[in-house]
Amino acid sequence: MTARKRTIAAVLVSAVLLGGAGGYGIVAWAGSQERRTGGNAVQAVTTDTAATGDRIVFRNTASGDGYGLVAFVPLADPAGERSVTAQACDRVYATTVVEMCLHIDRGIVTTFAATLRGADAAELRTWPLPGIPSRTRVSANSHLVAVTAFVTGESYGTVAFSTQTTISTIDGTDYGNLEDFALLVDGERITAADRNIWGVTFGSDDTTFYATAASAGRTWLVRGDLTARTLTAIRESAECPSLSPDGRHIAYKKVVTGTASPVWSIAVLDLETGVETLLPAPGNVDDQVEWLDDSTLLYGLARTDVVGDSDVWSISIDGASQPRLFIPHAWSPSVVRS
């Protein structure tokens, strides 16, 4: 087996074992070479100009030379012409100040890295990742960045998988691996070696965040404190949370089947009342949702007919309406308001 085939095989195994932390991105990587051929299915222009104005930044999954590159559309016209940059990212998240890019650098030796760029697209800093990119977020005030990646074992025949999530400031102050924080469930500290943390979303200050914690087959929505270095469980069965701009709701994906292969849908938790609303989002939603506004969510959904392709959908958090296609051939959206 060639080194390339061994890498692809290991990647596909990780997609099965750790789908809950970002399986779509892994499968998309495995099919990326095929997606780079063929014509674009959307109207697009290439650009070397830094993005400005209210916009949605995302990973372009339309086939052709622009596949896998960062793109953006005006917030007022998400289905219109997209501008495609020269930057390749497997996960991207942007604010008015910075853009966070997680990327797989393919070559004789495949490596993984995170790159933080300024609003002018100039590189601020870059650092290696321990494995395949999974999630990233930037705080609303652009002070903090969070990165989740898979950690793969050394041996292909006995590969062990886990995730590593870190938080740092944009100037490089590192809070370290969140697995080193104290994980508290019902007042008891969980110290099991199998615990994993992923999918950070930030509060309005530079201390509070939310994330997913997992151990012994259970997952929790946890509230994190960067100063106290604690993770406190506030609800079970919630993954990849995303806090609303007004801080009143948290949306997350939730397992809605009891089968061996989990199927996720989207749920929204009212933080004041504790009421959870399960949204009518068909398909298997393996994404960390983004807030379009305080009442509408955006999420990526893999296409079942083409490996490596996906669309961004929108849905109201009231649970009263069906989702609608928002941006075709897109993934990893972030809403940027100037």
Rank of each mutant, 00 (worst) to 15 (best):
I266T: 14
K253Q: 14
A192E: 14
E290S: 15
V222I: 04
K254A: 00
N284T: 10
A281L: 05
T277P: 01
R195W: 05
L298G: 15
W220M: 00
S261H: 14
A260H: 10
D206S: 12
G203P: 00
P262H: 08
T296W: 09
W198A: 07
T257M: 04
S265Y: 02
D206F: 07
P241A: 04
I234S: 02
A302M: 12
A211W: 11
E276Y: 06
D287C: 13
S237A: 10
A281T: 15
F202I: 04
S244M: 02
V263W: 05
R248P: 03
L221N: 03
R195C: 01
I190N: 10
T227G: 09
V289D: 06
D194W: 08
D309C: 07
T273L: 01
K253N: 14
T296M: 05
K254R: 15
T191Q: 07
D246T: 13
G203C: 00
T201S: 13
V307R: 14
L301Y: 12
E236A: 04
L298S: 12
L279D: 01
R303H: 15
P262D: 13
R248K: 11
A213I: 04
P282E: 05
T273I: 00
A213L: 05
L301E: 12
P241V: 01
Y299A: 02
A233L: 00
D287G: 10
V256Q: 00
D246I: 07
A238I: 01
L292M: 08
L297A: 13
S310F: 05
V275H: 09
L298V: 10
D293M: 11
T212F: 06
T257C: 06
